[in-house]
Amino acid sequence: MSDETTSKRHTSLVTKLVLVTFGMFGFGFALVPLYDVICDITGLNGVVDLQAADYERGEVDPDRKITVEFVATVNDNRPWDFKPEVRRMEVTPGELYTVTFETTNTQDEDTVSQIVPSVAPGRAARDFRKTECFCFTEQPFEAGENRDMSVTFFIDPRLDDRTNTVTLSYTLFDLGAGDDPDFDPEDAQLHAGSR
């Protein structure tokens, strides 16, 4: 085997391996949408729709009752008051309900919040349908502003029989003043553990 053919074989093999390297770098990024797609298709992991669902009154089983619990959390202990008007309610699958969350921005500057929903158990996430929600868009608040925000939802009657309780959890993220993503980064610095 001469040096020239060896060199050619190296070039072709190494080119392929380098291409695989770049391909796998891209694959790492492709995993982000891939996970969403897979979770969406299989209904695993309770991916919550951020789009308004269409409601059409169909058949309702008045005997079936589902307990819906509401949880409201403020991320990072930011100065907000955020709580649901009711902690839990009994609903009939297929009927439409509205619940309001009383929200106050207790800081003395204007800011914007994004509220992110999550449903437990995950297998119920696809059947918890919101026709209207404050979580679909960013919510601007003036300093000290207090307002009630509402979510309108129904439980899809195809919800599996095992599920009797569904928890809807909202986490409020303070995005800072206006649309500025660089809001006060110093505040989030992890301080060297002082004793």
Binding site: F22, F25, G28, V116
Partner: peptide, 25 residues
């Protein structure tokens, strides 16, 4: 190894370039 490089690159852009790969907000 390229997948790790991708993951830490996403951390980098989340921190400095306003992406939200891992940011729930």
């Amino acid at each position: 190894m390229p997948v790790l490089a991708g993951a830490v690159t996403m951390l980098l852009t989340d921190q400095y370039f306003g992406t939200s790969f891992f940011d729930a907000a």
